Amino acid sequence: MPNVETGAPPYGLAVFNQLDAARAREELLACCASRAFAERVAAGRPYSDTDALAAEAGRVLAELPWDDVLEALDAHPRIGERPRGPGREAAWSRREQAGTAHADREVLEALAAGNAAYEERFGHVYLVCAAGLSAEELLRRLHARLDNDEETERRIVREELAAITRLRLAGLVAPPGGAR
């Protein structure tokens, strides 16, 4: 059973490679909530190493139709809004957005307003790989991206989704106890 606070998985790559297809898809959905992504990456097993898994995930993400990207985006909380509840995906989101945990109220209110403006402009949640970024930096990036055209923003969203997915995949297949 994974540790719901850290999102630590119960196994490494070798065990992931041996999961039945349904369980592998379920685990992959915690990394990227596109059913097409989970299906294709699970079908590519066994992976020789984590680099091969990451490379295949990147290829799949780059080829997903936009509707499948939107499906993945639907699972992401807004920046500045802490996901609630147990589970690996919520734990990962909390950890990834740690830079907003102690942000002052003005910055959080500006993020909320920026999220609303972004969603009005682009029709989906503002997605950014928030790991290691402060709330102020996330807000700067959000404001900069509001000026993007649709094509540019879709490219950036795919890049950000790929970055988040790489982090989560690394966590998913990390050997128990963190040894590599």
Rank of each mutant, 00 (worst) to 15 (best):
V4E: 08
N17K: 06
R25G: 11
E27P: 05
E27M: 11
L28P: 10
L28D: 07
A30D: 13
C31K: 01
A33P: 04
A36D: 15
V41M: 08
A42P: 09
G44K: 04
G44C: 05
P46V: 10
Y47V: 03
Y47N: 01
T50C: 11
L53M: 04
A54L: 15
A54S: 13
A54P: 00
E56R: 15
A57S: 15
R59Q: 15
R59H: 11
L64V: 08
V69L: 12
L70M: 10
E71I: 02
E71F: 02
A75Y: 07
H76C: 09
H76R: 05
H76D: 04
R78P: 02
I79Y: 02
G80Y: 06
P83T: 04
R84E: 15
G85W: 09
P86F: 10
P86H: 13
R88F: 00
E89A: 15
E89I: 00
E89N: 06
A90G: 06
W92K: 00
S93M: 14
R94I: 06
R94H: 06
R94Y: 05
R95Y: 01
A101N: 05
A110S: 12
A112E: 14
N115H: 07
A116R: 13
A116T: 11
A117Y: 07
E119D: 10
L127K: 01
A130P: 06
A130M: 05
G132L: 10
G132I: 08
A135K: 07
L139S: 09
R140Q: 13
L142C: 04
L142P: 00
L146D: 05
D149E: 13
E153H: 03
R154Y: 03
R155Q: 11
I156Q: 13
L161N: 00
T165I: 01
L167P: 08
A174H: 02
P176R: 11
